[in-house]
Design a protein around this nucleic acid. Structure first.
Length: 281
DNA sequence: CTCCTGTCCTGCCGGC
DNA sequence: TGCCGGCAGGACAGGA
């Protein structure tokens, strides 16, 4: 589910409930997530103060004053709920981990499919963990630009859509925003990544930045049941131009007149890709 | 290296 | 109403 905008929204949502506070309880209901939850996580985190939170790609990092840093990933179906101090923490199906803070705030990690992860790494070593060691640049940072992307995809024969999902090329992009960014850039998803010329790389980089920023501003995209940490729905799904719009008319006004201006769905590397055959070349 | 397929797991939706 | 197949926002292993 969650791609960069959703993860960023969740991180911003749980930050006020965690930062500067001491973890007083770590309740683990299931240890068998995609990566096993460390068996000593309760011991390692209880009594530690949360100093800061950071997002990297689709991961959320929680830095504590103790020897361990917490790493969290929402997988496909993961959600976080933040509770205010006076609120009753309701128990829901698939609540796997509950963190309670010293002022009564609580953070719940819920994940039906259990593709998500919560684990710890020794302080200051997270960047060398395999999840991050070969991760590409943050797409919203200055070090993600057309020359950098061009170098990363040079001579790659794989199509550009699948390439954008490769976290080593650029971090945080998933199936929705790969489709949306390619549409905005006017680039057909089937194009070999290494064949894009500099103008196209420039357009793609700008499209990625703009669509991600718009999605963050909208609180992410709520498809089935994605929610922000405060329970609010994101609303960027209403802004989709192509994702999940198979058979519907292209939203580009110049395209709607054309018989080809109907959104198509194809499968690339086993995942659905949505695009406009008329607008994307 | 690159590139593709299959797999992990649960829930939902559409067709019959 | 119920059953069944297909599909889902991600990441990784393994094999060609």
């Amino acid at each position: 589910m969650p791609e960069l905008p959703e993860v960023e929204t969740v991180k911003q949502g749980i930050e006020p409930a965690m930062r500067g506070k001491v973890i007083v309880d770590v309740q683990v209901n299931r240890y068998d997530l995609r990566v096993p939850v460390p068996s000593d996580i309760t011991k390692a985190l209880t009594g530690q103060r949360v100093e800061s939170l950071q997002r990297r790609g689709k991961y959320i990092l929680v830095f504590t004053g103790g020897p361990q840093t917490v790493v969290m990933h929402l997988g496909m179906s993961g959600r976080m709920r933040a509770y205010a101090p006076q609120e009753t923490v309701t128990r829901e199906k698939h609540d796997h981990i509950i963190l309670t803070m010293d002022d009564g705030n609580a953070i719940v990690f819920n994940d039906p499919r259990r593709f998500g992860m919560v684990f710890t790494v020794p302080q200051d070593t997270w960047e060398s963990h395999k999840a991050f060691a070969s991760m590409g640049p943050e797409p919203l940072g200055n070090d993600f630009n057309a020359p950098v992307l061009g170098k990363a995809v040079a001579r790659r024969l794989t199509n550009i859509k699948t390439t954008l999902l490769d976290q080593r090329i650029v971090a945080g992009i998933g199936n929705i925003y790969a489709c949306e960014a390619l549409y905005r850039a006017g680039i057909a998803p089937q194009r070999a990544a290494g064949d894009l010329v500099s103008d196209e790389l420039e357009a793609l980089v700008q499209s990625i930045k703009v669509v991600l920023n718009e999605a963050i501003a909208a609180g992410g995209s709520s498809l089935k049941d994605y929610r922000q940490a405060d329970g609010q729905l994101g609303y960027f799904q209403h802004g989709f131009a192509v994702y999940d719009r198979e058979g519907q008319l292209c939203r580009n006004s110049g395209c709607e007149q054309s018989s080809r201006g109907v959104i198509k769905r194809i499968i690339q590397a086993g995942r659905s890709t949505f695009y406009c055959p008329s607008c994307q070349k």
